[in-house]
C-alpha cells in the first residue's frame, strides 16, 4: 500500500462519495480549499479562501446564542464563535489540514468499487492547483494504489505548476467559462490567458480530458460566448453544466453575499439545442 515518505499536508474542505457529475464511473471527490478565481456564480463559497472559513447553517439556527458566549478553546479564537457548543451542530469550520498519506488511505477504501466501474477519485475544489505539492502527493499515492485519478481545475495556474500536477493524474475536467478576456476578468476576477496556455499544454500532453462549461444565464450562457467557446473547444469533448438554482444557498452560512442574480427573462434552450452549438458536447443533467 501507499507510503508517503515526505509528510506533505494540505487543506481540504470536504470529501464526497458517489459524486456522479465529476468524471467517469463511481467517484469520490475531494475538495481542496482555496481558489484564485472569484466567479460570482460559484456554489462553493466555503472553498474560495485558503484560510479556514466559519460556516453557520443559519436556516436551522434557533438563536440560542450559545456559540456567541466566550469560550476557552484555542481553535475557536480566530472565529469569535465557539465551535464546540451548538446543540444542532450548525457551527462548523470549512477547511482542515490533512496529511497526503492519511487522505490517500481514506480515499483508497473504495478501490474495489471504483475499479469495477471505471471510476476513481477526483481532485476538485476550490482549486487543487493552488496546493500543487499536496495535489501531486495525493495523486501519486492514489496511483500507487491503482486508483484512477481525475483533476477538476479552472486551469488557472503557472504553466510549470499545471504541467507538474497534470503528470500525476489520469484524466482532467478542465473548466472553460468565458471566451473573452474582459468578461473573464469581470466575472471570475482573473485573466483567461494562463488558462488558454494550459489548455494548449493539456492538448499536447495526450491526457484524456473533457472541457466543462457552466451555463450561467446572462453571463456564460449567451450565444456569443458559447459560440466563441465552441470555436475554442473545436473537436474536444465538452460537458455543459446547467445552472443550479440553489447555487447561492451556502453564501449566508459563510457570511458572504451571493452577488449573482438570475436574469428575469432567461432563454429556455433544450439540451439538444445547446449541444448543437458544439461539435462534441453533452448536457449534464
Amino acid at each position: 500500500m501507499f507510503n508517503v515518505t515526505q509528510s506533505v499536508t494540505g487543506t481540504i474542505f470536504d470529501v464526497k462519495e458517489f459524486t456522479v457529475h465529476d468524471g467517469p464511473g463511481v467517484r469520490t471527490t475531494v475538495f481542496f480549499k482555496g481558489c484564485p478565481l472569484t466567479c460570482i456564480w460559484c456554489h462553493n463559497p466555503e472553498g474560495m479562501d485558503t484560510a479556514p472559513t466559519l460556516m453557520v447553517r443559519n436556516t436551522q439556527c434557533t438563536g440560542c446564542g450559545l456559540c456567541c458566549r466566550p469560550c476557552t478553546h484555542a481553535d475557536c479564537r480566530p472565529f469569535g464563535r465557539c465551535l464546540h457548543i451548538c446543540p444542532k451542530g450548525l457551527v462548523k469550520v470549512a477547511g482542515r489540514a490533512v496529511g497526503a498519506g492519511e487522505l490517500v488511505t481514506k480515499l483508497s477504501a473504495g478501490a474495489e468499487l471504483y475499479g469495477a466501474g471505471g471510476g476513481g477519485v477526483t481532485l476538485s475544489g476550490g482549486e487543487p492547483l493552488l496546493q500543487p505539492e499536496f495535489a501531486r502527493a495525493v495523486a501519486r499515492g492514489l496511483h500507487e494504489n491503482g486508483i484512477h485519478t481525475a483533476l477538476q481545475t479552472s486551469g488557472f495556474a503557472k504553466a510549470d505548476t499545471f504541467a507538474s500536477v497534470l503528470d500525476t493524474v489520469d484524466y482532467v475536467l478542465f473548466d472553460l467559462k468565458l471566451a473573452h478576456e474582459d468578461d473573464h476578468r469581470r466575472y471570475t476576477g482573473v485573466s483567461c490567458v494562463p488558462i488558454h496556455k494550459n489548455l494548449a499544454h493539456l492538448r499536447e500532453s495526450g491526457k484524456p480530458f473533457v472541457l466543462r462549461i457552466p451555463l450561467i444565464p446572462g453571463i456564460t450562457d449567451t450565444d456569443e460566448n458559447l459560440t466563441a467557446l465552441s470555436a475554442l473547444a473545436g473537436d474536444d469533448p465538452v460537458e455543459l453544466m446547467p445552472y443550479n438554482p440553489y447555487a447561492g444557498a451556502k453564501y449566508p452560512t459563510v457570511g458572504k453575499v451571493f452577488r449573482y442574480e438570475l436574469p428575469e427573462e432567461t432563454e429556455e434552450r433544450s439540451p439538444e439545442t445547446l449541444a448543437k452549438l458544439f461539435r462534441r458536447a453533452r448536457v449534464l443533467r
Partner: peptide, 21 residues
C-alpha cells in the same frame, strides 16, 4: 437529481453490486 442523467444508472448498479460483494 442523481438520476436525471441516465448515464448514472450504471454507477448506481455498481454501488449496489459493491454492497452485495
Amino acid at each position: 437529481s442523481v438520476f436525471r442523467d441516465p448515464d448514472n444508472i450504471p454507477k448506481l448498479a455498481n454501488l449496489v453490486r459493491y454492497f452485495v460483494s
